[in-house]
Amino acid sequence: MTGVLQSVNQRTQLVGQNRLELLLFRLRGRQVYGINVFKVKEVLQCPKLSSIPNSRAVVRGVSHIRGETIPIVDMSMAIGLPGVPQEELATSFVIITEYNRKTQGFLVSGVERILNMNWEDIMPPPKGAGKDVYLTAVTKVDEKLVEIIDVEKILSEVSPLREDVNEEIVSRSSAGAKRHLPVLVVDDSSVARRQISRCLTAIGMEVVTHNDGRQALNYLQSLTQDGSSIRDHLSLIISDVEMPEMDGYTLVTRIKEDPVLKDIFVMLHTSLSGVFNLAMVKKVGADDFMAKFSPDELAERVMELVGQD
């Protein structure tokens, strides 16, 4: 456990190498789950929890940790499994994370180890898994299936974000409305794709979506195989960082290395807000970075880029 605690925030060397490090953990049972270490601030033994009146059962309480009052979400309950029994709290662990500009803790039964992996070894969930599954990806470790949790889906249900664009911004976009080329949105989370698409549609933009960097790169290459410029087809690209098969950093690198694609504007749009370093974005050549998810901020930025503002 000491090794896990010491390693959590020392991972910037993986940027641009299509690699990630997974923190492996267990809920109630033998199944192993994973979460990207980049989103983890700290792992600790479950602290004393204070109850919150009228809160949802999945929020087991709050804890005062390093000057912050942090909600603690029972991850088992959040994905539809039985929660951690009260008598087992003292022997459980909390993974403190930062997603979408907020800090929260996830209660888990046990934390195993950190594993360095290649994104090419991370696969999308099986097609038959259904829309309600709480996974963004799966992989194999020691011949055992590891399920990578869709934390954005959990948080959208536990603590929903405002997804609507401010009416004043929508009015401004309508006033300056003209036909624009589509925006390509690349994100492995169905929740994130929906949120971004809804935001862009509200300001009159057409949206094309893909689930990972490899899909997106193949799509870009198919658009330009006739020798046309990518800017004849798209206004800009908005990409997540964490994605199976090819991550956002690698996608940006491949785009900027390609003479036919390099002129397209690429924004990295990620929930890695806490441990994210802007130098990482510059290292791979992205044109912009924005932390998820502020519909007004995203709408304003896209309007500025396409000349609607």
Results as ranks from 00 to 15, higher is better:
residue 25 F to W: 04
residue 49 L to T: 08
residue 84 V to C: 11
residue 68 E to K: 15
residue 61 G to H: 02
residue 47 P to Q: 08
residue 67 G to P: 05
residue 34 G to E: 00
residue 62 V to E: 00
residue 85 P to H: 10
residue 37 V to A: 15
residue 92 S to F: 05
residue 76 S to M: 09
residue 58 V to A: 10
residue 58 V to K: 11
residue 31 Q to I: 07
residue 58 V to I: 11
residue 18 N to R: 11
residue 89 L to Y: 09
residue 61 G to N: 02
residue 83 G to Q: 01
residue 60 R to M: 08
residue 57 A to V: 12
residue 22 L to G: 07
residue 28 R to T: 14
residue 96 I to Q: 03
residue 82 P to E: 10
residue 93 F to E: 12
residue 60 R to P: 01
residue 83 G to Y: 00
residue 30 R to E: 08
residue 34 G to C: 10
residue 38 F to V: 10
residue 70 I to A: 01
residue 90 A to S: 12
residue 63 S to R: 05
residue 77 M to G: 10
residue 36 N to M: 12
residue 65 I to M: 01
residue 96 I to N: 06
residue 87 E to S: 06
residue 23 L to V: 10
residue 43 V to Q: 09
residue 70 I to W: 02
residue 55 S to A: 14
residue 39 K to F: 10
residue 37 V to P: 06
residue 85 P to A: 12
residue 23 L to F: 05
residue 57 A to H: 03
residue 39 K to H: 12
residue 51 S to D: 02
residue 19 R to W: 07
residue 64 H to L: 13
residue 70 I to V: 13
residue 31 Q to N: 02
residue 59 V to C: 06
residue 33 Y to L: 13
residue 46 C to T: 14
residue 45 Q to N: 15
residue 65 I to Q: 01
residue 38 F to G: 03
residue 80 G to D: 07
residue 66 R to I: 08
residue 83 G to E: 02
residue 76 S to T: 09
residue 68 E to A: 13
residue 40 V to H: 07
residue 60 R to G: 05
residue 47 P to W: 09
residue 39 K to D: 10
residue 41 K to A: 12
residue 88 E to D: 10
residue 55 S to R: 02
residue 91 T to E: 06
residue 44 L to R: 14
residue 43 V to A: 11
residue 29 G to D: 00
residue 95 I to T: 03
residue 36 N to K: 10
residue 86 Q to T: 07
residue 44 L to Q: 13
residue 79 I to C: 07
residue 60 R to L: 04
residue 49 L to P: 05
residue 57 A to N: 07
residue 57 A to K: 11
residue 89 L to E: 05
residue 88 E to W: 04
residue 39 K to C: 14
residue 95 I to C: 01
residue 66 R to A: 09
residue 82 P to Y: 09
residue 73 V to C: 12
residue 93 F to Y: 15
residue 42 E to T: 14
residue 59 V to L: 04
residue 52 I to P: 00
residue 68 E to Q: 15
residue 41 K to F: 12
residue 34 G to D: 04
residue 86 Q to Y: 07
residue 33 Y to R: 13
residue 48 K to Y: 08
residue 32 V to P: 02
residue 36 N to R: 09
